[in-house]
Design a protein around this nucleic acid. Sequence first.
DNA 1: AACAGGGGCAACCGCTTGCCG
DNA 2: TCGGCAAGCGGTTGCCCCTGT
Length: 402
Amino acid sequence: MGHHCCSKQKVKRGLWSPEEDEKLVRYISEHGHSCWSSVPKHAGLQRCGKSCRLRWINYLRPDLKRGTFSEQEERTIIDVHRILGNRWAQIAKHLPGRTDNEVKNFWNSCIKKKLIAQGLDPKTHNLLPASKTLLHGGGGGGAANPSGNGLAQFQSNNGAAAAGTTPFTISSPAKAAAYDVAPPAIPPALYDVVLPANPAGGMLMAHDHHQAAAAAAPVGYPYADHGGNGGGVLMSFRDQNAGVHGAASMDFMNGSSSSSSMEQLGGGGGMSSNGNGGFSASMAAFMDEEAAMWATAVEPPGMGGLAGMDQVAQQQQQVLVQDAAVGVAPTTLMMHGGGAATAGAMVVDKSVEMVDVSSAVYGGATATAFDLDLMVESCGMFCGGGGGAGAGNAMEQLQWDC
DNA sequence: AACAGGGGCAACCGCTTGCCG
DNA sequence: TCGGCAAGCGGTTGCCCCTGT
């Protein structure tokens, strides 16, 4: 069955011959493609216009960059995909010379498998459920956990953490060592795990610049610290040196924060947490899918406590939280390098199960061009959005310059 | 050397969106 | 406002090539 647009005529399908390519290139070069449906006719091709268009866009365009993807392109794809999802055309716009089809194929054939191999869900970029389970050393299990969230499960296994099967085992870039083996030689005590006061609390925190060197990521690891800033640990509980890094040091379980960064996020509303895992409206807004993504300060019904957080966890999306030390206005969302000068950004995963510092450790002093672009975009959309309930569609805003 | 299986990539399919009469 | 058409886009398929047995 051919395309509906060309079902009336006999058209050739399948791979393009060099002669066909030549005809199409010659025609487009001379006449352009004002109307694709008329291109095959005028170019002397027995193809439908749609096929011609695809061939031109995906293969014959002179500005296409062929060949394998660079490491930076790969990181860019992962970064943008984390935010946009499978919007290949939008992702491709961040990669000059690459087509959406190419990006899509590269994702499906390569990146996707890498992420899965690393225990990350390629859709959400968070730990796969199976991997989360492994955090608990296989002991206990969710069945014994009434709240059903990852942290509570982890809490029930604090002893195991001390024994070596810490959550850092899986989140460490060194997790290539499979999940059934002992973690890298990182002294558990160095992680300053903040034990929640309330077993029902549900947040797994991350970001430990303190032990960056010990958890150095292997080359090629997507979440490696490309900025030479150390890091590489995807999960921990508290930045031990927030005063130096300027990173948020939060103890959600105890409802305190040793840094003001998160409190600034809410634009006055601030962020608070109590022993029951409740969040203020401003933080709840960050936790919501689109609104949370790009700032709608509305607390959905039933979002008040852990139950609400669990709901949000169904729609895993990540919010990048601006570091207080950078001094950007409240409700400004940024992805930045996290270099020594700017300190590490805290990246809060709205799944509320862990904090993803991947973007923070990406950049360092050598933040990618994408980081900068997205930074501008993100700032723009936030500043423009005003943080009110009427803030527009986040995705649309993200694409405003595409 | 022959074959099977898997991976990568080009192309297709069908739905959505935008434009225009 | 509505319908038709073309383009855009994401998901899927199928072919080709490489690698392992």
